[in-house]
């Protein structure tokens, strides 16, 4: 089973290298970083918080965009091009197919995020800003990986109902809405809280590291949602006539 899942995941990862999305977004990030570093406002320069804010915002956003775009098109693309039929004719169960797609897209998003995050941290260090503790950077890395896992699994589930464009749009809106207003929405206790995985403010304003129990709690929280979304995707996909 693991081998079959790994083969499907590998196919998704190869797509990252083949397609131009990643390179385009990477170039955009580098432009944003260089542009933010050169900013001068009112004759003043050296705005450390503003630079960190810009860098980390785009690092987070671009990795979510890559994850969501890849996740949104996986299943519809396989169905449109009819490549799903020979795939499922092999001894690959529908669950393995969904799981393979999830792991593949998650890996794509994680690799992209790792590259983006390294550029962000590198640029902060190049500006001789050593104010943010390493552990806080590590917390930001771990929590964002959890967030990617949440969004990738959610997007795969939605891709079974929505077109790629609609799915991408709704998921990105959901990402922004929860990030900006998550804790202020009434009745929001019944909905997921992906905003808890975003510690951008903490990194920008150089605050304390995240306590271990909170990290553990959020890890379990993200894993639960990921399992829920993957299980729901399997349930829906299993019942679907192809």
């Amino acid at each position: 089973m693991f081998r079959r899942v790994a083969v499907i995941a590998e196919g998704v990862v190869k797509e990252l290298v083949r397609r131009k999305d990643f390179y385009l977004i990477l170039a955009l990030l580098i432009i944003v970083v260089i542009y933010s570093a050169s900013f001068s406002f009112g004759g003043e320069k050296g705005f450390t918080r503003y630079f960190k804010e810009m860098g980390i915002t785009f690092t987070y956003l671009f990795s979510v965009i890559i994850g969501v775009i890849f996740a949104a098109r996986q299943i519809p693309q396989e169905m449109e091009s009819k490549t799903i039929y020979p795939l499922l004719a092999h001894p690959v169960s529908r669950f393995e197919f969904i799981l393979g797609k999830f792991f593949g897209v998650f890996l794509v998003a994680a690799v992209s995020f790792t590259v983006f995050y390294s550029i962000f941290i590198g640029s902060v260090l190049l500006r001789r800003d050593f104010s943010t503790p390493w552990l806080l950077f590590a917390d930001g890395y771990l929590l964002h990986l959890l967030l990617l896992s949440f969004f990738v699994s959610m997007t795969i589930l939605l891709s079974l109902f929505l077109s790629t464009a609609a799915n991408t749009m709704i998921t990105i809106i959901f990402y922004f809405a929860t990030n900006w207003f998550g804790a202020t929405l009434p009745g929001y206790i019944f909905l997921p809280h992906p905003e808890l995985f975003d510690i951008k403010e903490k990194i920008v304003h150089t605050q304390d590291v995240i306590p271990g129990w909170v990290l553990s709690y959020l890890t379990v929280y993200a894993v639960c949602y990921t399992i829920l979304f993957v299980a729901l995707s399997d349930l829906v996909f299993r019942k679907r006539d192809l």
Binding site: F47, Y50, A183, D198, E201, K202, Q207
Partner: peptide
């Protein structure tokens, strides 16, 4: 634990950080 919730003003040397906005 994950968001900045305390309210304390920037120190005078850091106040210029508000300018870009």
């Amino acid at each position: 634990s994950v968001k900045v919730t305390g309210d304390s003003h920037l120190t005078p040397s850091e106040e210029k950080e508000v300018l870009p906005w």
